[in-house]
Simulated scan of single mutants.
Amino acid sequence: MFGLLQDWDKLLEEFSVGEAWLPHRYEEHDYNCYTYALAFINSVLAAQGKQQMSKSEFTEKFVIPQTKKASKYITLHQELTANEFYVVPLPDQEKRC
């Protein structure tokens, strides 16, 4: 995994120069940023000999869990600000910062 992280930018650059991802080919519903990201991830998986993911599988495994987390934080923030609460560090935490 560490080797992949080191080469991530290089792999992405190599993937991006292909004809498939020229700007004029962009299409809002079927050929967009999401399909680009998924195609890149699938190219990395294929290079590692792993099974590629469908759009729905990727969404279920990675997008939805992160969206749920973000939703919880947004809801918490909205409730705190709507009720005029604010958070301050505890005295012990101020010394560590």
Rank of each mutant, 00 (worst) to 15 (best):
A46I: 01
S71L: 14
M1Q: 05
P65L: 09
G49I: 00
R96L: 12
D30E: 02
K72R: 11
E19Q: 02
Q52L: 03
A46L: 05
A82K: 02
K95A: 09
Q78A: 14
Q48W: 00
N83H: 09
D92H: 13
E57H: 10
L45K: 11
T35G: 00
E84S: 09
A47T: 01
L4D: 15
P65C: 03
Q66W: 12
Q51H: 06
T81M: 09
L4C: 14
D92L: 02
K68S: 11
A37C: 14
P23E: 07
Y31R: 11
Q66D: 00
H24I: 15
E79L: 04
F2W: 04
L22A: 15
F40W: 09
N83P: 00
C97P: 00
Y36R: 09
Q52W: 08
Y36T: 06
T67A: 04
T67C: 01
C97I: 00
C33Y: 10
Q66N: 09
K68W: 13
Y31E: 01
Q66H: 14
K72I: 10
K61A: 13
F85A: 05
V17W: 12
D92N: 06
N83Q: 12
F58Q: 05
M53A: 08
K10W: 04
I64N: 00
V63T: 04
T59H: 02
N42A: 11
Q52S: 10
Q51D: 06
H29R: 13
K50T: 02
F85W: 06
P23K: 02
P89Y: 10
M1R: 03
G3C: 11
A82S: 08
F40S: 11
H24L: 14
L12A: 15
S16L: 05
E14M: 07
F85G: 02
G18R: 13
F15T: 12
Q52V: 04
D7Y: 15
E27M: 08
E28C: 11
C33L: 10
L80A: 02
P89C: 06
Q78G: 05
L90K: 11
C33T: 10
K55Q: 07
F62G: 04
E84V: 09
Q78V: 09
Q6D: 15
P23M: 07
S16F: 10
E14W: 03
P91Q: 04
Q66E: 06
Y26K: 15
D7M: 11
E14L: 10
K72F: 10
R96Y: 09
I64E: 00
S54F: 03
P89S: 08
G3I: 08
S43E: 08
L4H: 12
T35E: 01
E19G: 02
A70S: 05
W8R: 14
Y36S: 03
Q6S: 15
F15Y: 12
Q48C: 07
V63F: 01
E57F: 07
E14K: 07
N83R: 06
T59W: 00
Y36L: 06
V87F: 07
I41Q: 15
T59Q: 01
K69C: 06
D30F: 07
D92E: 09
F2Q: 04
E79N: 02
P89F: 09
E94P: 07
Y86F: 13
N32I: 05
E94W: 02
P91W: 13
H77L: 05
A46M: 06
R25Q: 08
G49V: 00
E27V: 06
